[in-house]
Each structure stands twice: as C-alpha cells, then as structure tokens.
Amino acid sequence: MKRNNEKKLTIVIGSSRLGANIASYNSQNGVYTVIIDKNPLAFRKLDSSFSGYQIEGDAENLDILNAANIKEATEVDVLTNSDNTNIFIANVVLKYYKVPLVLVRLMDTTKSVFLDDPRIRIISPAILSFRSYKEIITEKEL
C-alpha cells in the first residue's frame, strides 16, 4: 500500500548503512528527508537519487536538531552505531519535541528499558538477524 507522503518530514540521525538506506528509501518515496551525521564522508553511502538535506553535525546538540526543523518532524530515526548515543538522543527528542514516531536502533536490547514511551519503536539488528536465521534454517529443513 502506498503511503500518503505529503507533509511528512523524516529526520535520520546517523548515516550508517541502515541510516543511509532508510533516508534514500524515504526520499525516493517522496518523503521530505533530512539526514544528520558528524562525519561528512558518511553521506557517500546515500543513494545517488537522494534528494533530501544533509546536515554535518552532532545530533546530541539541540541546535543541530533545530536546524533539521525537528519541530515539524513526523518521524525521527536514531540510527548511529552507538546504543548509548541513540538512547541519549532519543530521550532528548522525547523530552523536548512532540515527534509522534521515534525509531531507535539498539543492539543491546536490555537497554530498551530506557526507551519506555509509546512514541518509541525499537529496531534491533540482533533480533532481526536471529529471525532471519530461523527462517533460513526452517526453509532448509522443509
């Protein structure tokens, strides 16, 4: 089902492989997308079709989040390679902004207790990988 992407603003924090793919996907689907990373070289992972904004800076800084127009954001995806950074940024976003959906990448799922809010959705590479493993094994056995 095609999403209605008018007036959507997604902010992606961390231009990791996952972050760059999500930002590229949203941009291709007509979602206004801003991607933030401390390292400008990380933006090379974006698809050539990406037409959103790139902001070089530390998303732990409110000035950077404001520069990304976070007050208007409909979705913030916190996807840096550090769980601790992701939890901190997600807590800042929840505390100061009324963003309706905050996705957080978390390797160590025991730390999900620090993200206890209905606006939070956790993406866990460990759980997703394990799910894939089970699917592969099940297919093989059939």
């Binding site: 732990e60 550090s82 601790n84 950074t85 939890i87 901190f88 940024i89 730390k111 207790v113 620090f114």
Partner: peptide
C-alpha cells in the same frame, strides 16, 4: 569521556 556514556551510566544506576 563521552556525554552519552555518562548519561547511560548514571541512568542505569538510578533507574535500575
């Protein structure tokens, strides 16, 4: 050394 790490250390100690 890192602000986020200090936040996590204090939050683990206080909340859990």
């Amino acid at each position: 050394d890192n602000d986020a790490n200090n936040f996590i250390a204090c939050t683990i100690a206080k909340k859990l």
